[in-house]
Simulated scan of single mutants.
Amino acid sequence: MSARAILLFAFALFSAAMLGLAAGAVWMVVTLYLRHPLPWLALPMGALLAWTIRSFVRPAGIGAAVLAACATALAAIYVNMLIAGVLIAGNMGMGLIDALRTAGAGMLWQLARMALSPADMGWTVLAMLLAAWLAWRAPRKR
């Protein structure tokens, strides 16, 4: 592999991770505004991530499909960790940033994992498959 290919791969990986984190943050805002979990929102987030990755990060194909599925999984994990942080902040009377720092990634991950239901996992897996499928296929020509 050339140095250019390695740099492009690293950039694509970084871009997909940042897009997944951004999608998770948007998902958290909607969830908090409506005041109940929205696991089905994984589907539109996965479709949006697939479209964004296929259009701007990698061309349609296996690379874009893997990146889109991973970004969707990251968004689902991140939203659950953020919600756990919000709950800790609310219960302890702290700000969100202070709660996230105090709890740490390990505790947030454990709380998020404990809160996951089989339905949440089902929606996430379905969204990952949708994202991979949408990023795999080439856009239609007009």
Rank of each mutant, 00 (worst) to 15 (best):
V30T: 12
H36G: 09
R4Q: 15
T31D: 11
F14T: 01
L41W: 11
A25W: 11
P37M: 04
G63S: 13
V57R: 05
A23C: 06
A22K: 00
A60N: 05
T52E: 11
M18V: 14
A12Y: 06
A17Q: 02
D98N: 14
Y78V: 00
P139M: 01
F14C: 05
R58I: 02
G24L: 02
A50H: 04
R35K: 14
W109T: 13
A25D: 13
P118K: 01
W51P: 00
A119I: 12
M121D: 10
A3Y: 13
Q110G: 09
L96K: 05
W123T: 02
L116H: 07
N91H: 12
F56A: 08
G95A: 11
A138E: 15
F56S: 05
P118D: 04
M128Y: 07
M114T: 12
S2K: 10
P39D: 07
H36Y: 15
L116V: 07
L82H: 07
M107Y: 13
V26T: 09
L21V: 11
A47N: 06
L34R: 14
V79C: 10
V125S: 01
L21N: 02
D120W: 06
G90M: 02
A3P: 06
S15H: 08
A119P: 02
G90T: 00
A65F: 06
M81I: 00
P139W: 08
L38G: 11
L48F: 13
P37W: 09
L87I: 02
Q110W: 13
L38Y: 08
F14L: 09
C70N: 08
W136K: 04
A69E: 08
L134G: 03
A103D: 12
M45K: 00
P44H: 02
L19S: 06
F11R: 15
L111E: 13
I53Q: 03
A47K: 03
L134F: 10
V57L: 08
P37D: 14
P37K: 03
R58S: 09
H36T: 10
L19A: 14
V125K: 00
G93Q: 05
L7R: 15
A3F: 13
A60P: 08
L126V: 08
N91Q: 13
Y78T: 02
A75T: 01
A68I: 03
L111P: 03
L41V: 06
T102M: 15
A65D: 06
G106T: 10
G122E: 10
L32N: 14
I97Q: 15
V125Q: 00
L111I: 03
V29P: 03
A132W: 03
L49V: 01
A65I: 01
I97L: 14
M107T: 13
L8Y: 12
F56V: 00
A132Q: 05
L32K: 05
N91R: 10
L48K: 00
V79D: 09
G106I: 00
R101Q: 15
H36C: 09
A42D: 12
W133D: 03
S117T: 15
L134Y: 07
R137A: 09
